[in-house]
Design a protein around this nucleic acid. Sequence first.
DNA 1: CCACAACCTGACCATTCGGTCAACAAGAAA
DNA 2: TTTCTTGTTGACCGAATGGTCAGGTTGTGG
Lengths: 215, 215
Amino acid sequence: MSGDAQISRLKPGRRTDIRRENERAILEAAEKVFAEAGFGGATMQLIADMAGLPKANLHYYFATKEDLYRRVVQQIFEIWLDAAASFDDAPGPVEGIGAYIDAKMDISRRHPHGSKVWASEVMHGAPVIQDYLETTLRDWTEGRIAVIQRWIDEGKMRPVNPRHLLYLLWATTQHYADFGHQIQTLNGGRPLSEAQWKEAKASVKDMVLRGIGAI
Amino acid sequence: MSGDAQISRLKPGRRTDIRRENERAILEAAEKVFAEAGFGGATMQLIADMAGLPKANLHYYFATKEDLYRRVVQQIFEIWLDAAASFDDAPGPVEGIGAYIDAKMDISRRHPHGSKVWASEVMHGAPVIQDYLETTLRDWTEGRIAVIQRWIDEGKMRPVNPRHLLYLLWATTQHYADFGHQIQTLNGGRPLSEAQWKEAKASVKDMVLRGIGAI
DNA sequence: CCACAACCTGACCATTCGGTCAACAAGAAA
DNA sequence: TTTCTTGTTGACCGAATGGTCAGGTTGTGG
C-alpha cells in the first residue's frame, strides 16, 4: 500500500494520477480561500498560488470560478450527508442523536473551511445549491423528522418539535466551525485543545439530550 | 405627526436632516447588499442604486468601502449588546435566559441582514471587529458566565458549562437569521408565519431551559 | 520511432470596480 | 445680494480580475 503510493509519487507520470492529484490540490486550496474570503473576495490567482499551480492551469481543470466553487460546495454537502448516517440504525435518541452530535462536531473540527463555505452559500441565498436544498436536504430532513417522531411516540423522549430540534443541532454543531475564530478569541486567542473539544462535545450532548428528555 | 413628516419631506432643506437621511439610506442599503453578496461581492454601485443615490455621493458620506462596511458592522454589534441587557436583573435562568432567547430571536427576525453581515465578518476572521471581540465581547461574556455560575451555585439550574451554554444560545438563535433561506426552503419556500415564529421561540426556550435543568 | 492526446503556461484582453475630481447646485450667514 | 459652506454628480482613471489562447512539453498507444 505505502509501496504503491511511494512509486506513484516518484513516478508522477500516470495521466489519471496527475489529474486526480491536481484536482485535489486545487479543491483543497479553493475550499480554504473561499472560506476565508467568500466567493466574491476569492481570486483565482490566490487559489492558484496556494495550490502551487499557474492560474491558467486552474482553468484547464475547472472552466470557470463558478464551476470550481460548485465542486467545493458539493464536496462539503456529501460529507454532511455521510455523517447523517449516524442517525440511522439507532435504537433511540441517546444513541442516534448522540452519535449525530459526535459526528457533526468532528466535522466542524476537521473541515472548518467546508462548513464556512456552506454557511456562506446558504446565507447568500444558496444560488448554487438551491436544488440540493429542495430535493436531497428536504427529503433527508423529512425522514429524520419521522424518526424523531417515532421516538417520541415510543416514549423515548419528550414531545419536542422535531424540526426545531434539527435546527438546534445544526446550529450548535456548525457554530464551532463557522464561529471558530470568535470561540478562539474568547479562549485567549488559542485554538480549543483536545480536552476542550471533548468538553464541548460532552456539554452539547448533555444539554441537548436532557433538553429533549432522553436522559 | 404626518404633517411634520410631510413638511420635512417637502422642505428637505435642513443640512443635518439631509446628512442624517442620506447616511441612513446608505447604511440600510449597504447592510442588505453586504448581507446578500458578502464584502467582496458587494459593489458600491449596487449599494448606490439601492439607496437611490449616485455612486459618487456615497464617497462623499463614506470615504471608502471599508469605512461603510465598518459602520454597518458596528451598528449591528450595538443592537446585539442592547439585547444582552435582557440577561441582567433577572432573578434566575428561567427569566434571564428566557428573555435573552426572546430578544435574540426577535433580532433574528427583524435584522436578518445584520446578523448575516456579522456572521460573515466573524467567519472571515473578523478583520474589522477583532478589537471588539477582544474587549467588549470578551468582557460581556465573562460577566455572563459569572452570572450563570452564580445561578448554578444557588441551585437554580444544573451545573452545565456556562461558556458552551452561551455558544449554544448564540448559535441557535442566530441560525434563524443566518440560515433563514434554508429554513424557508424547508418550509415549502414560504417564510415562517407569525405562529411558526412563536413556535420556534417556544421550542428553543423549552429545549434549552430543560436542558440546563431550569424547569 | 511516430503520432496523437493530455497537460502546461506566459502573455494577453475585455470588463469591472473602487475611488477621484472638477464643475456645479443649494442653503446659510452677512 | 453677496459670500461661504455643504451637498451633488457625470466623467474619468488605474488597478485588479476572470477568462482566453497559441504554442509549447510530456506521456502513451501503435
